[in-house]
Structure formats: structure tokens, C-alpha cells
Amino acid sequence: MPDGAAPVLDVKGLKTVFQTRSGKIHAVNDVSFDLRPGELLGVVGESGSGKSVTMMSLIGLLPSPPADVCAGQVLFGGRDLLKTDADALRGIRGKRIGFVFQDPMTSLNPVFNVGFQICEPLRKHMGLSKAAARNRAVELLELVGIPDARRRLDDYPHQFSGGMRQRVMIAIALACDPEVLIADEPTTALDVTIQAQILELVKDLREKLGMAIIWITHDLGVIAGIADRVIVMYAGQVVEQAPVQELFSNPQHPYTRSLLKTIPSVSGDRAPRLQVIEGQPPIQMKAPDACPFLPRCAHGFDRCAAENPARLAVGQGHDVACFWDPATGGPRHV
């Protein structure tokens, strides 16, 4: 749980631009957040909000000709990851920062058995011998709840179900005992019952291993279930950040408020129509100089069109990038 200790990962002013044939796409615009030891940070946003691109920019997983991480600092382990050379970054990826991807059906190499794929980072980063790596791999598979682990090491990915494959991916990400685990929508491709199992597993692992986790999702229900703190992203920017209870009980940004309203309720009368947020998130062809949510916002005024709001503190650990105050219904006093 967050305890005011120094953040294990500190991102300041991250900017990522994609060079495409139709121009530059500003996918990540001045994103800042920090991750404290042992906490689970939820990252929420709809498709196209820049959540995955932000996380992949942190550790250099974006292919460099189209993508350009052009500004910012990512402080991890006393160094700026954006200024670290490729070889050193490779030493950190997989060893100190683990990554779990979205689609378990295609994220594992189909021609190598699962044992080989788990042992690869073990042998590279920890220098384990083949036998030692195999033993550790069995431990890891047991840790993530795969029965008959030693026999399953020689099985191929296609012999596992989707949920099992995602557990294998988690095992691979945790193999070298990383300080940070970044999970990019790991349960989006799985059905809800399996999703619940994976969430329980991750909560359990966090208790046991104590690593910090960044969990990207577009499902607010998942966030309510496991996150300690949440950042809400829109159009490549952080629009709100708050501890999870605070976010659900006192959302400040119009986007967050609309998101919460769109969740269909299982209790009470069934609403005649589902609530939606009209419109699409923008693709930023230039660095935004106005609030990106303005076209879809019910509360915008002139200042929103002239200036991109900076993040303002509105409570303990709670900040929002908006000029509108829900309490008064008028502009915030800055």
C-alpha cells in the first residue's frame, strides 16, 4: 500500500509523436505520474487515449522509425530510462520491469514450448543453468496456478486455454522478480469468469511478492476491484488522478463523470437507453493548445478553447486538468 516512500517509477512530461504519411500524430502529450512501491496504479481511458503507447514508451518497446519519444523523463532505479542506451534498457526489460500484453492467444511464440519461453529471461537476466531455470519455471507456473506444472513445461502454447496462457504470460513477466509489472489490458480478451480469476491471482501475487503494478484497462469495474490509485487518460493526456475511492465518490473531470454514468447498473430499474458520451476521441495532429475533451464536454466555456488546462490539485492526492468545478457548476478558482 502507498506509504509516502520514494516512487519506484517517476514519469515527468512524457511526449511521444508518431511520424506517419499523413503527418505527425501526438499520441502522448505531457504525461506525468508516479508509481509508489507496492501499489497498484490503474490507468483508465477509452481506446485511442494513449494508455498503451505511454507504457510502451517508458521502456522503449515502440518501433523507432515511426515513434519518437521526444520529451520527458522516466526515472527508474536512479536513471532516466529515456536516456539509457538500448543494451542497458534490454537488461531492465524483463528483469526489473515485467510486461503483460493484451492478447494471450498470440503473445506466446507458437513453435517453442512454454518451458523454453519462461526459461529464456531466467537464463539471460539471472544467468541460471538449464536445470535451475527449469526448476524456477516450475515454481512460477505453480505460483500462477497452473496445475501439473512440471509436465506442462514441455507443452506448447496451443495446448493451453486463453486464461492459462495469460497466466503463463504473467509467469514470464514475474520470472526475474521485477520491481514493476506493467499489465496492458491483460483480461480484455478473456471472459469475465476468467477475468475474475486473473484479478484474484494478481492481488494474491501482489501480497506475496510486493511489486508495484500498473494496470491498464478500459473497464472501471476492474479498477474498482483492484486499484489503489487511478489515472484517467484522454487523448494522450492525464485528465484526472485520484485514489480509487475518491475517484468513484468525487469525480471532478467531466470525462470521468461521464464515464461513471455510462456504467449500466445491475440494481434498480433498467434504464430505457444506455448512457453514452457522444463523439470520438481526437487524433492529435499537433500538440494540443485547447482542452481535447471540449468537443464532447457539456460544460465547456471560452477558456477551454483557448488553453489546454494544466493539472490542479483538488484534494489529497487528487488532481484534475479542467477549468470547470462540479461543485459550483462554474469555472474553477485558480
Binding site: 534490454r90 524483463g94 515485467g98 503473445s107 506466446l108 529471461p121 539471460k124
Partner: peptide, 14 residues
Amino acid sequence: NQDYVRTARAKGMT
């Protein structure tokens, strides 16, 4: 361009 290539890079392989 397959996903498993991204996984391999995320594991820190050269």
C-alpha cells in the same frame, strides 16, 4: 509483426 515478437522484446532479448 506478430505479437510474440513484442513479447520477446519485452523480455529483454537482444
